[in-house]
Design a protein around this nucleic acid. Structure first.
Length: 97
DNA sequence: GTACTGACGACAC
DNA sequence: CGTGTCGCCAGTA
């Protein structure tokens, strides 16, 4: 099942973001949002756009320890805009498969 | 089997 | 939006 979820994440296009629940559901595991995050924290697949995965609120789910900033910067590099509260507008940047 | 953890989600205030 | 509660399930001990 790791493979399936990883495969879905690889399909997220640059400039877009997807939510954990969205990925889980699209991979065939509705309600398994936690597994997506769990797998991301476990696997170290090359060129995996893990930074395009965020929670349903449209914000980064990492603690502000540096990786948070890394993800934010990587997304901004792709043209994604964060508002003053570090939230992403999913209406605009949400991935719609 | 039980208990706890975790990059989550939906819903109610 | 912020908080709290409950549900979810693979891993681990």
């Amino acid at each position: 099942m790791h493979k399936k979820i990883i495969d879905i994440i690889y399909r997220i296009p640059a400039g877009k973001v997807a939510t954990y629940g969205q990925i889980a559901a699209f991979a065939g595991f509705p309600g398994r949002a936690r597994h997506v995050g769990w797998i991301l924290n476990q696997t170290n697949a090359p060129n995996l756009p893990w930074f395009r995965v965020i929670n349903s609120k449209g914000s980064i789910s990492l603690p502000h320890n540096g990786k948070y900033e890394l993800q934010k910067v990587l997304l901004q590099e792709e043209g994604i805009i964060f508002d003053e509260k570090d939230f992403i507008n999913l209406k605009i940047f949400g991935w719609k498969p």
